[in-house]
Design a protein around this nucleic acid. Structure first.
Lengths: 168, 168
DNA sequence: TTTTATTTTCAATTTATTTTGAAAGTTCAG
DNA sequence: CTGAACTTTCAAAATAAATTGAAAATAAAA
């Protein structure tokens, strides 16, 4: 298989994969392109390689930067900006976990915390089920929170390192 | 806070939460409604409580059933079908992990397996970066695969049980 | 069998999201 | 300062996804 072909397939599949996880297809594709680009590239490179507009590249790059997955690079003597992705895939995973946790899990736990103070008959079947379910989801969320924190804080690569030795 | 109010907020937030994870808002809302309903309910109940059409309920319920999160219940002597969600939140989480792994991680690993046989100069910078990155993602994916398998197979509730004692 | 209740399907519509591209904004060399 | 190079913004257009609702299919009752 030729490199150009494999690269194309990787980018396209990564985009499709992303959409299943609530990530904009183009953002995932730009990330994929940057992941396999050894050197920083420009907005124009991305526009050309993915056949997308300047505005689209600009917005999605900004998004990727807000996730700390991509950085803006100014080369001395060059007018154009270059972009480069974090290449350590463990750091990438960690960073995504960290951000999703902050943006989604934390607010969800906050919400659940507000929902357990229900007026009325605690012996009512509906009320009991509701309070019980909210409590269970909260427990699950808190445990996930702890697990993810350990993963985020692990110094070494948890996908080869010692933290997850328990998983054989 | 009144039950009806809390329930409404839970359903609505669960829907919003779902969309961030690539899950249809309505499907997540139906699931939320079923989670807090102690007894099985009908399509008409769902239509009424969420103000959505019959076709919509039908399709999303089918989807939830395909995820093994909801089951169809036929009450003897009743013409209508009833629906009930799995209430053990640990089983729910496990089931979702299992399904997403099967539907998404497995195909992704399959794809990556096809992309590492690149023709041409293995010393070329682009080629090296591509092969290295694909290999790294594959390693990460395989490790995630193992971790998730352990979670899926754990007998006890992993969010309170012994498997994750390592996470303090 | 025929009628009636209920579920399923799916083309058409609505709604939500993404993308474009040109204008406005910014930066910097001369 | 001025103008060229480059980046950002955002309203409008395009695309994608979800929803409706009525007709068709199915299943149970009469």
């Amino acid at each position: 298989m030729k490199l150009s072909e494999a690269k194309q397939q990787f980018i396209s599949s990564w985009g499709a994969f992303g959409t299943q996880w609530g990530i904009n297809r183009t953002m995932a594709q730009i990330h994929a392109l940057l992941l396999v680009s050894p050197d920083p590239i420009t907005q124009d490179d991305i526009m050309e390689q993915l056949s997308i507009s300047r505005g689209n590249v600009n917005m999605n790059i900004r998004d990727l930067i807000s996730w700390s997955l991509v950085e803006r690079i100014i080369l001395p003597g060059e007018r154009k900006e270059y972009f480069s992705a974090e290449k350590d895939i463990w750091k990438v995973a960690t960073q995504i976990i960290k951000e999703r946790k902050k943006r989604e899990l934390d607010p969800m736990l906050k919400l659940l915390g507000q929902l357990d103070n229900i007026d009325g008959d605690k012996k009512d079947k509906e009320t009991k089920q509701f309070i019980g379910m909210i409590g269970d989801i909260k427990k699950l969320g808190n445990q996930a929170d702890k697990v993810l924190d350990v993963m985020i804080k692990a110094e070494e690569n948890w996908f080869t390192g010692s933290v997850l030795k328990i998983f054989k």
